Simulated scan of single mutants.
Amino acid sequence: MRMAALAVLVLSGLLLLLIVFRKKMGWAWLSLFGTHLLLAALGIYVVNFSGLLTDIYIPLNPATIGAVTVLGLPGVLMLMGLKITLF
């Protein structure tokens, strides 16, 4: 079962690379993604060390960075709301 899952992962990764390079998107998407990633980390960093809300600390891990990268500033607000309501 584990080999089947690994085979599906490798095959889907190769097909994704094929699609990316056949569409002539080049490397522009990588710089855009990097910019979003950097701004997401900066947004979480500002929340953690601004001192406005002292009881909120959002850890910098792949899940939080990914959520903020995809959702943008509302993602930071979502994480803050989750931190306030759940913890």
Rank of each mutant, 00 (worst) to 15 (best):
D55V: 09
N61M: 10
L79P: 00
L14T: 12
G75Q: 01
M25D: 06
N61P: 02
I44Q: 00
V68F: 02
M80K: 03
V68A: 04
F21G: 02
F87L: 12
G75L: 02
M3V: 06
L82E: 09
L60A: 08
L79R: 01
G43S: 15
K83T: 15
M78G: 08
G72Y: 03
K83E: 15
G43F: 06
G13P: 02
V20D: 04
G26I: 12
T69R: 04
W29K: 11
V70D: 04
L32Q: 15
S50K: 00
T69N: 07
N48V: 03
L77C: 05
M3E: 15
L30V: 14
L15S: 13
V70K: 05
L73P: 07
F87P: 07
L9S: 11
V47D: 00
I65M: 14
I56N: 00
R22E: 07
L9F: 13
N61F: 11
V8P: 02
F33V: 15
F21Q: 08
V46R: 00
S12M: 14
G43Y: 02
L60F: 14
L42Y: 08
L9G: 06
A4C: 05
L11T: 15
T64N: 15
L38W: 13
I19R: 10
L39G: 00
L71T: 06
R22K: 08
R2V: 07
L52N: 03
A63G: 06
A41D: 03
L73C: 05
V47Q: 01
L6M: 14
I65H: 03
A41E: 03
M80W: 03
A7H: 09
I65T: 06
V70T: 12
A67Y: 09
V68R: 01
N61C: 06
G26F: 09
G51C: 03
F21R: 13
W29E: 08
M3Y: 09
F49P: 04
L37T: 12
K83Y: 07
L86G: 05
W27S: 08
L11S: 14
M78I: 08
